[in-house]
Design a binder for these strands. Sequence first.
DNA 1: GATCGCATGTAGTTAAATTACATAAGATGC
DNA 2: GCATCTTATGTAATTTAACTACATGCGATC
Lengths: 280, 280
Amino acid sequence: MTILTHLKQSLPSLSKAESRIGEAILADPEAAVNSTTADLARLAQVSDPMISRFCKTLGCTSFPEFKVQLARSLVSNSSFISEAVSTGDSAASYIEKRINANQAALEYLRGNLPTEAIEQAVAALGQAKRIEIFGMGGAAAIAKDAQHKLFRLGTPTIAYEDHLMQRMAAAAANEETAILLFSFTGRTESMIEVARIARQSKAKVIAITHPQSPLGELADITITSGNELEDTTIYVPMTTRIIILTIIDILATGLALQKGPAVDQQLKTIKHSLEDTKIS
Amino acid sequence: MTILTHLKQSLPSLSKAESRIGEAILADPEAAVNSTTADLARLAQVSDPMISRFCKTLGCTSFPEFKVQLARSLVSNSSFISEAVSTGDSAASYIEKRINANQAALEYLRGNLPTEAIEQAVAALGQAKRIEIFGMGGAAAIAKDAQHKLFRLGTPTIAYEDHLMQRMAAAAANEETAILLFSFTGRTESMIEVARIARQSKAKVIAITHPQSPLGELADITITSGNELEDTTIYVPMTTRIIILTIIDILATGLALQKGPAVDQQLKTIKHSLEDTKIS
DNA sequence: GATCGCATGTAGTTAAATTACATAAGATGC
DNA sequence: GCATCTTATGTAATTTAACTACATGCGATC
């Protein structure tokens, strides 16, 4: 963990003077790196030695060491400032920008993915006897990808992109079914309908979607699709898929860990089944 | 440029004492970050003020500032160390590890994606009157995703995952067709066959695959799928997908930039077509 | 061979950071 | 409700780190 996130986390537990210092640093961390204790003390309106104490509270041995740590944490945040591509950009330039944007999206995920939701989702997937995955439009490819990743872990897993198939599968589901729904906005009417049917069937509904959306509120477990990022100036569109793919990655990893060595043979068998289709 | 590379570059032009300091720092930069001028001076067997002078020679205003800069340059080298997940990892732990692994994959892409290949591929896609996208197995979802992104830019684009459909489409192609092939290994026999048929039809064949593979060598333009990165652990790493998805992202971005404002209306129309399916 | 200049070391000074101490505010017990 | 104890914070003093000014020595050039 970087010192900056550590600071953010421990901000509430700090004393009055110390939190003033913390806020002064967070307001302009770059400036803090180039400050002396006196500078910072003046800025936060506290006495000089409070800065030293503040640093020790955060686990550093001295103020200079704190500055070094702070400088470190600023790198990882500033290197992911993604810029929008613009007409006239060279290939090298837009390649760089898109990679930055996608890395930034993952960086966002690091701080904003609720651990409990993942744990619950993994538990639900682990208990399920069947997994159904629904996605339409752009999410259809994602559903397919998730199916491809999850079916290997031993539980029958099917992906549907057809609304009618989804309705039937949702209606036929029971409490031993986990249903994974992918929707960027969480406002697609047919998806919401399917989710409603699935809940009536007592299936466990996991939605990867916008948390403050009808679909997000309907599901048993909701994980953000990062869609709340789209449209903002900093995070350019197209990054949501990277986020969702990484969430699938994380869910599959969690599930594989939960099932443990039991799935190893399964994975080997599946891999082996492809051998005859490859040339050496 | 980071201070560390700057130091490496200017090492030959430094004076005797100064280069001793430079070498001492390069020998263990991490230790230098936690040193005082006196510590470093002893290590490099020079006098104390030489350290200050050394820093100024490198363009820093003071030794503390140099330390901060040094700390900065060390981050970019040491971050993105991806660790394998292991049994007993907490959710928080494997979430962190997977995000790291995916960011590392993108970092790899930054250094290893050949600009010229991207330029050629964008040019080929731009000139094409039709785009056909082929992928099987795990790559089928990727092909579907690419189709979903590229069809919006005005050129008729179809994705096939069925080998027979792929054969027919490849045979029916002509010099105005661009064919995008996704294959992780580049060794799937049926994919190679399809590529061969496509070349006979004089279509432009773009392969996103392992560069040193039969398929990679067969294609007009080859872009790495990052498959050379996959380690052999049983828990299938998903980093290649992230890489390929980002490549698709980059290709679509390049194509959109090339077409310019011409596609803006097209994008708006497509977006508008979904409005009635969403609830407010 | 002498002098000039540059590189480096020594001593001293400045300033920055920490420690030790004192005080005030808030909490706790009677 | 008052007294005392604890904790947080400021003040003063000390230590330590970093830089400046100066001195010396080595190498180069005339």
